[in-house]
């Protein structure tokens, strides 16, 4: 009798928790879907950028946060994705529905191949190799013999697509929803992936490669595939970015982009999925706010926005060394102390 009561009450509480969670998700979903209707075109464009960054961050986090391989050069795959999109649509007239996945597959191939030398290089050496990749790709894009394809220093123009099926959406709104669709699919895929057998293998390799190998994990295969997958995510982000901006050129994919992506995953939290949204918001908006703060400081402070950005970055790392996800975890841990303690249902029977 007692057992039954306890079981049913436990079920009720967990059911209530589930419902509250589901309600929160629904409200959040509605806000995300409703946002582009209440904001100016430019804001919608910025939010699309946030979604694009979130996809790229998730890609790098699969590699760095879950698999433990550091890359300072994922801007290169962003560039490959953006340029594949631009070349396919500008030179071959391929529809973006087709070009975006193709960009993803191309980047998967490039990342998979880069994963092989990466197997030989650990830690710092891999950081150097990928850093070199980040510097090399913009130089190669400017390289004269490739001009007919890449458009050289000028880059390539893309036309922003209009909404299909006669939907009453502006181009910016439609691109926002396109990015949102891509992000939803990719977030769903990776949150399932990291819980799967392959995901556990990735994490095991990060934590203890030798133990993982003893357990029968194929180190080389998992690491190269993860590299490819991570590159594919970033490539899709690059393709979406090319489409949203309507323009690709070598300088938009420089070292700064690569470093921003790394900043984003650390600010969001290594090994976290939803933290990447926070990271993306940070790298999209904080440089702008730093700019505004330096405007307040007066006319002479023209060059200071980056100094303010740097100071903010260091302060955030000081306050939350494990990023937003880590801060969230410790907040939840401390917050629980102030809530009424709930008896755990298994005790006392």
């Amino acid at each position: 009798m007692l057992n039954l009561e306890l079981a049913s009450s436990a079920e009720a509480t967990s059911g209530a928790g589930f419902n509250a969670r589901r309600a929160a998700m629904v409200v959040l979903g509605l806000i995300v879907v409703g946002l582009p209707f209440g904001l100016s075109g430019f804001r919608v464009f910025q939010l699309s950028q946030v979604i694009i960054y979130a996809i790229a961050l998730l890609g790098l986090n699969l590699l760095t946060g879950f698999n433990g391989q550091i890359s300072l050069g994922h801007g290169a795959f962003f560039a490959i994705g953006g340029y594949s999109m631009a070349i396919l649509s500008a030179k071959f007239g391929v529809s973006y529905w087709f070009a975006i996945p193709v960009a993803g597959f191309l980047c998967f191939g490039a990342g998979f191949l880069f994963g092989f030398p990466a197997l030989r290089l650990g830690g710092l050496y891999l950081a150097l190799a990928t850093f070199a990749l980040a510097l090399a790709v913009p130089q190669l894009l400017k390289f004269k013999p490739f001009d007919p394809w890449t458009g050289g220093v000028q880059g390539l123009l893309l036309s922003k697509p209009a909404a299909p099926l006669g939907l009453p959406l502006t181009r910016d709104q439609w691109l926002y929803f396109l990015c949102l669709l891509g992000a939803a699919l990719l977030f769903w895929f990776s949150s399932n992936l990291v819980k799967s057998r392959i995901g556990r293998a990735m994490i095991a390799i990060r934590d203890h490669p030798i133990a993982a190998e003893t357990m029968g994990v194929d180190l080389a295969l998992v690491k190269t595939t993860t590299f490819g997958l991570s590159a594919a995510y970033v490539g899709v982000a690059g393709a979406l970015s090319g489409l949203t901006v309507g323009f690709v050129n070598p300088d938009s994919f420089g070292l700064f982009l690569s470093l921003s992506i790394v900043v984003g995953i650390v600010v969001g939290g290594l090994g976290s999925i939803w933290g990447m949204v926070v990271g993306a918001l940070f790298i999209e908006f904080v440089p702008n706010y730093a700019d505004q703060i330096s405007d307040v400081l007066g006319e002479g402070a023209k060059a200071l926005p980056w100094a303010i950005y740097g100071v903010l970055l260091i302060l955030i790392m000081y306050a939350a060394p494990e990023g937003a996800a880590g801060a969230g975890r410790s907040l939840a841990r401390h917050g629980r102390r102030f809530l009424p303690r709930r008896e755990s249902p298994s005790r006392g029977t």
Partner: peptide
């Protein structure tokens, strides 16, 4: 990586 980000902050 946290320290790396601090270095990047110092750099900028």
């Amino acid at each position: 990586l946290t320290v790396v980000i601090v270095f990047i902050g110092l750099l900028v």
